[in-house]
């Protein structure tokens, strides 16, 4: 499924780039390629079963003190 998604994203992006090249919006292409590449990289890492940190886990640990604090005000 991940591969399907990658193929879809890539083919879609390539079609998009044809139009962008015609319009000479190279800046757009650079931006887009950067984002797309990071996305695909993440996908490949996931396919290789690399353990990646969870985003919300990080946010939770960073902001847990605040929530604890506020909860203590209200209880």
């Amino acid at each position: 499924m991940t591969i399907v998604a990658m193929i879809v994203a890539l083919s879609g992006a390539l079609l998009e780039y044809r139009r962008l090249v015609q319009n000479k919006s190279y800046r757009d292409i650079i931006m887009s390629v950067c984002l797309l590449a990071s996305g695909l990289l993440l996908g490949i890492l996931q396919m290789l079963k690399v353990k990646l940190p969870s985003l919300m886990g990080g946010i939770t640990t960073a902001f847990e003190p605040f929530s604890k604090m506020v909860e203590s005000w209200f209880s």
Partner: peptide, 27 residues
């Protein structure tokens, strides 16, 4: 922000990124 000509060019990359970040949000 990046002064692109067409914001639409970011849609597919953002969707892709979102697609691959979604499994990472919480285990």
């Amino acid at each position: 922000i990046f002064r692109l000509k067409d914001w639409r060019s970011l849609l597919i990359p953002l969707c892709t990124l979102g697609f691959f970040i979604a499994p990472l949000t919480w285990p």
